[in-house]
Simulated scan of single mutants.
Amino acid sequence: MNPLQKLNQLGQSVWYDNIERSMLNVDGELAKLIKEDDLRGVTSNPAIYDKAIRSSSAYDADIKELQKSFNSPSDIFFELAVKDIQMACDLFMPVYQATNSLDGYVSLEVSPDLAHDVVGTIQEAKLLWNKINRKNAMIKVPATIEGIEAMSHLISEGININVTLIFSIKRYLRVIEGYISGLEKRVSAGKPINHIASVASFFISRIDAAIDPMLAENGKALQGKVAIANAQKAYQHFLEHYGEKRFKDLQAKGAKPQRLLWASTGTKNPEYSDVLYMDSLIGTETVNTVPPATYDAFRDHGTAKLTIMDNMADVDGILEQLDSLGVSLEDVTKKLEREGIAQFETAFNAMMDTINEKLLTL
Rank of each mutant, 00 (worst) to 15 (best):
Asp314Thr: 15
Ser74Met: 04
Ser201Trp: 04
Thr354Glu: 11
Glu184Ile: 11
Ala231Asp: 08
Phe203Arg: 01
Glu244Cys: 02
Leu102Arg: 10
Met138Thr: 05
Leu91Val: 00
Ala293Glu: 13
Arg186Ile: 04
Ile48Thr: 01
Asp353Gln: 15
Asn162Thr: 08
Glu345Tyr: 09
Asn133Cys: 04
Ile228Ser: 03
Ala31Gly: 12
Gln232Cys: 11
Asp249Phe: 02
Asp314Asn: 14
Val119Cys: 02
Tyr49Phe: 15
Ile196Ser: 05
Lys248Ile: 11
Ala221Pro: 06
Gln123Trp: 01
Arg134Thr: 02
Asp50Pro: 00
Asp331His: 15
Asp208His: 09
Ala227Ser: 11
Pro292Asp: 09
Asp310Ala: 15
Lys68Gln: 14
Leu39Lys: 11
Glu337Val: 13
Arg171Trp: 12
Tyr295Arg: 09
Gly302Tyr: 06
Ile19His: 00
Val290Thr: 14
Ile196Phe: 10
Leu173Arg: 15
Lys32Tyr: 13
Leu281Ala: 07
Lys135Asn: 04
Phe70Lys: 12
Leu91Ile: 00
Leu102Pro: 01
Gly283Phe: 08
Leu108Val: 02
Ser168Lys: 07
Asp274Phe: 07
Arg186Glu: 05
Leu66Gly: 03
Ile282Asp: 04
Phe167Leu: 03
Asn194Arg: 11
Val290Glu: 02
Lys185Trp: 05
Lys248Cys: 07
Glu149Ser: 14
Glu184Trp: 05
Val82Cys: 08
Gly11Thr: 04
Gly219Asp: 05
Glu124Ala: 02
Glu146Gly: 11
Phe167Asp: 02
Val110Ser: 02
Asp38Pro: 09
Asn45Thr: 03
Leu250His: 07
Gln5Leu: 04
Tyr242Gln: 04
